[in-house]
């Protein structure tokens, strides 16, 4: 089960209303390489992992991504909370406003809603971990683009934190990948027909 803790992982802050920035940052909430996709991808891949380290890493990183989703939501919420209608229109956020007011919704930067085809759960653990490593890199790139677009130094600091986390997660998935290679190289030996490793050692 999951338990909610009444604190953010990182003290997300913004300098002031900025609907233009909110319009692009929201892609890390409900976009293809966003935190919702990341979390659901890892949490749904856990079940078919053959080794304990992989199950643990996917559970822990998937849970952390939920915390990141909350950080991104906080950014977006605080960037549009006090924005005036005029600001929203000027920022091109009026089409979003027409459907959602200032509420949070899972869309990418151009307004397309989140879809499950953003993620994959292939059943082959090696393939799934590669998918995750690619996902971390895609999210890292997205945060880099968002940092370039940001004109709010406080929001940029928060984006930087999330950016760095992608690198750490990439490292962990890389280690899981190696553990899987190790696991399968051993597995392979023992599964060969008519081969008894103990008998082989004695001879």
């Amino acid at each position: 089960m999951w338990v909610y803790q009444k604190s953010l992982e990182y003290p997300a802050r913004v300098r002031g209303p900025n609907p233009r920035l909110a319009k692009v940052v929201i892609t890390q909430y409900g976009g293809p390489d966003g935190e919702l996709a990341a979390s659901l991808r890892y949490l749904t891949q856990r079940y078919t992992m053959p080794i304990p380290q992989a199950k643990a890493a996917l559970t822990d990183i998937g849970t952390e991504e939920l915390a990141h989703m909350e950080i991104v939501a906080t950014l977006v919420y605080q960037l549009i909370r006090d924005a005036s209608i005029e600001d929203i229109k000027r920022a091109g956020l009026d089409s979003y406003y027409a459907d959602h007011d200032k509420a949070l919704y899972f869309v990418n930067a151009s307004g397309a809603p989140w879809v499950a085809s953003y993620i994959q759960s292939k059943g082959d653990p090696i393939t799934d971990i590669h998918e995750n490593m690619a996902a971390e890199e895609k999210a890292r790139s997205t945060y880099e683009y968002l940092m370039q677009l940001s004109d709010d130094p406080d929001a940029t600091e928060t984006l930087r934190f999330l950016w760095q986390r992608e690198i750490v997660h990439f490292q962990r998935f890389g280690e899981v990948l190696d553990l899987l290679h190790d696991y399968y190289s051993r597995q392979h030996v023992f599964e060969m027909k008519g081969y008894d490793p103990d008998k082989f050692r004695q001879s």
């Binding site: 604190s7 992982e9 003290p11 304990p52 643990a56 890493a57 822990d60 952390e64 280690e175 899981v176």
Partner: peptide, 23 residues
Amino acid sequence: LLMRIMELEFACIDLDLYLATHP
């Protein structure tokens, strides 16, 4: 106090992830 908790918790999160692959 909340900030202190967040700092400690972040250290625990990062260590937790490290320990997942280095138990």
